[in-house]
Amino acid sequence: MSEALLEVRNLSVGYRIGAGTVHAIDDVSFTVHEGETLGLVGESGCGKTTAGRAVIKVMPANASITGGEVRYRGRDLVPLSNEEMRAIRWNEIAVIPQSAMNALNPVYRVGRQIEEVIVQQDGASPAEARARAEELFRLVKIDPGRLAHYPHQFSGGMRQRALVAMALALNPALLIADEPTTALDVVSQDRVFTRVRALQKRLGASMLLITHDMGLVAENCDRVAVMYAGRIVEQADTRTLFGAPVHPYTLGLKNAFPSTTRPKDEALISIAGAPPVLLEAPRGCRFAPRCPFATPRCRDEDPALRPVGPGHHAACHHTALAGEMRARAVLSETWTAGAP
């Protein structure tokens, strides 16, 4: 396997709120290799966005990294000052933000915003920046004449692609795409993401794709990490994760998305209940209260992330029973009977 570009080790992030500290992510580790796309999936609030934000250290004022390391090309970013981080943001690690639709400043022309980033971070002359911006617009298939327009004159998909162009402006080595297409309809989603993928391949960049869209993950990622309640519960290459998942949460997540091979009139199966509130570390496995396969041991003992196959890790006590769980997981009564 190629070299590690980004290594997140035992990272924990807490949000201070009135009632205490919410441990949004707890002891999370993952690696993005050169040229690879890692998918980080999970339901809303599982900490996937927090994890992405912690990498570039742009977080809300009440959030702080409480432990662990974020190694980028071998250098730990956690102790770096804001000034040092600013040199890394965008030049090295670029982000396509979650609300990309509104990420352009309404009072400036789109071209000016892109050129400004290039001039600012790269020290290019305005003419070079202009040429670069035009090239980028052609790459994301927008008429370069549109650089002279304001964001409100763009459609949603165009704005998103303009953001992609902006993120790629400085040839970043790592692209963090945080729900890059959620606000778009499926057709635009596909169009935007096809561009992103083609460009990523062409520029040889790595990508951390944060999403809850299993379809997007299946199509685009080399490896996948599944997050639940601030922890990574399963990590594997995409084929293995979709073909032979081990963790009950992954099984449930798979059920919750339509499949082209299952009969189309079959209802989707959802996981009953809600994730725990992370004000204090829950006892035992975090998924146990919603897990149809939970045993007394699950409620007592916190399972560690252990290897279950080549490049395949899972945090479950019952990985040995994975085959049986997989068979039962496709039945909807499994999920309705045992759950609270």
């Binding site: 570039i56 040199a87 965008w90 670029a94 400043n105 309404p106 971070q121």
Partner: peptide, 24 residues
């Protein structure tokens, strides 16, 4: 979101304040 985006792209406080917020 566009202020967040400016921060992500490496803009400092002064720049965000006078380039991105002030014109608005």
């Amino acid at each position: 979101p566009f202020i967040d985006a400016a921060r992500i792209s490496g803009a400092g406080h002064l720049r965000i304040l006078y380039r991105h917020i002030a014109p608005n």
